[in-house]
Design a protein around this nucleic acid. Structure first.
Lengths: 328, 328
DNA sequence: TTGAAAGCGGTACCAT
DNA sequence: ATGGTACCGCTTTCAA
């Protein structure tokens, strides 16, 4: 039998109301009484039932986090950031991995809505209309995408990509490929758009291959196309794709970076472990998670003044997979 | 304003009780009434408030999952397994990543206890007494460790290790090293114990190095010791450690598997991506998660007959990091 | 077959 | 400073 507020009240010889006060607003309780109650709480190991409390306060003390695929090493970092930040504010976290299925994502939001104070949503593929429809259910913060004026945490891709292209240009690369991830992914569209812009501005040629799954296998699949395209450098949609290419290149005996330079996005730990290690545009994963919770909590406490958008910096991690342009 | 059971009742022209019945026991409601209620539910998009329901039924429809470190690619697999199995039974999942800190783990259990029907606990390092103390708070299932007769899901390490040693023996290895993970880890102690037994039985020599963190860096740190030990094969505590060794060996120009064979545990995706790819004892990650939820749900519905233990098979994935023993 | 009412564990208002 | 009481959203007797 879990111990309830009544048990504590009885043990301390006070009313449940006083116990509640002692916990929520100790200032309103006489010193001596407070001590008595606190002793009873400690003795019985009383923990308020959050669900019951939420029923009346309208605050659950929980938040939801939805990610497309925990298996992609990018997301555990984000989850950790959310977790630690949430714990700091005494929030518990519902996690849902949706297996990249936007339908599941929407359902999950609806199911969770009543049990949380808000949701941190990382859903690169869901349609904008769908998302707008969901906003009515519960406060939401978007991660790594922007939808209208909804609160969001994004990374400054433009800045990062400029660094990357400057790096490649300095090494003499003039013809570059991009292996795009899922067509519907916001980040992918964003990266492609900026790449087009930056390469055009720099007088470079950009070759775009077919879309691939944002995974190792996607990179493996794209590698041969990239080679055939006669480029001296290639950016993968993310590190997994880039490492997939690295792997295929190695299998075909293609020298990296001698023959071709390879870059990724994210800076997952894997990129340091492979050989040659992968040059990549680091995304602040934990920070993204933290910022998401920050925004959400702001939104809850002070909806008026809450900052709606937060943009985090990205930076280039130069490693062994990039080098001077090959003379084809 | 979220829609409540009263709203539905009003819309359908019935009492809240009838709405409740329609959802929980449709058989008790007249056909026509039921239809009317169901239409109202659909029209208003009503979703029962689980917290409120839980208050009276004692069932929250939530479960907790505690893992030490999501950044270790082993755990996302487990989490996915838990998630999908939970979703099948319409359960939502609280996730806590404890950053390998047993104190946080215990706190988390206590905080979650009231909000969940049970907890799936993956806590290799927490003390047994601590765990026993926690069991009173809420039903628990242990993952990858056994504590007395508590419900648990484990992997048949003995069988897997026998396969691995047989493999190495067949290749001519006679002197083998093991790089142990955290001293307090149940899996680590288990693996070490079995390794001692199996190597002794096979007349092999086993060298055990110092304990390392269960991460890439741990493997890097241990690699030189291993080399100095004059063994022809080494097992790392897990794939991360093994890949760390691979990396250090590569940096030092040590040929794998020519000079030394390397094996890991887990079969995380990383082990296929590195080169040479890593031979490893696969652990059924998603299955472990699923089985954990299975056990927990059994425990909840039928405490008497519930199976307390489930042991999953492990098998050897032979890849390029193992080969014939070098003549030292 | 349906509704009224009590109550789950808390909080908050209004008295005292 | 403290207690009584209503109520949050829902389920579950108990009666009708």
């Amino acid at each position: 039998m879990p111990v309830t507020i009544k048990d504590v009240a009885r043990a301390a010889g006070v009313s449940p109301a006083t116990v509640s006060r002692t916990l929520a607003a100790p200032g309103l309780v006489r010193h001596e009484t407070r001590e008595r109650v606190q002793r009873a709480v400690a003795a019985l190991g009383y923990k308020p039932n959050r669900a019951a409390r939420g029923l009346i306060t309208g605050r659950t003390g929980n938040l939801g986090l939805i990610v497309p695929d925990l298996t992609n090493p990018f997301f555990p970092g984000v989850v950790k950031g959310v977790q630690t930040r949430a714990r700091e504010s005494d929030y518990a976290v519902f996690l849902a991995d949706t297996d990249e299925d936007p339908t599941v994502e929407a359902d999950t939001v609806r199911n969770l809505a009543k049990q949380v104070d808000g949701i941190v949503l990382c859903s690169p593929r869901m349609g904008e209309d769908e998302i707008r429809a969901l906003v009515g259910e519960t406060p939401m913060v978007m991660l790594n995408r922007r939808v209208g004026r909804l609160p969001s945490v994004t990374v400054n891709n433009a800045d990062g990509i400029r660094q990357a292209i400057a790096h490649l240009t300095a090494l003499g690369h003039r013809r570059i490929a991009y292996v795009p991830g899922p067509r519907a992914s916001w980040s992918n569209r964003e990266r492609l758009r900026i790449l087009r812009q930056v390469t055009a501005a720099g007088g470079l040629e950009l070759v775009v291959t077919g879309n691939v799954a944002p995974q190792f296998a996607g990179g493996v699949a794209a590698a041969d196309q990239v080679l055939a395209a006669g480029v001296t450098a290639v950016l993968g949609y993310n590190d997994l794709v880039a490492v997939g290419m690295l792997s295929r290149f190695a299998a075909r005996g293609v020298d990296v970076p001698g023959r071709i330079s390879v870059l990724g996005f994210d800076d997952i730990v894997l990129s340091e472990m492979v050989s040659p290690s992968l040059t990549t545009l680091a995304q602040p994963k934990e920070q993204t998670g933290r910022a998401g919770v920050d925004l959400l909590l702001q939104l809850l406490t002070d909806p008026e003044r809450a900052v709606a958008r937060r943009e985090l910096p990205s930076h280039l991690m130069v490693r062994n997979s990039t080098g001077a342009a090959a003379s084809l």
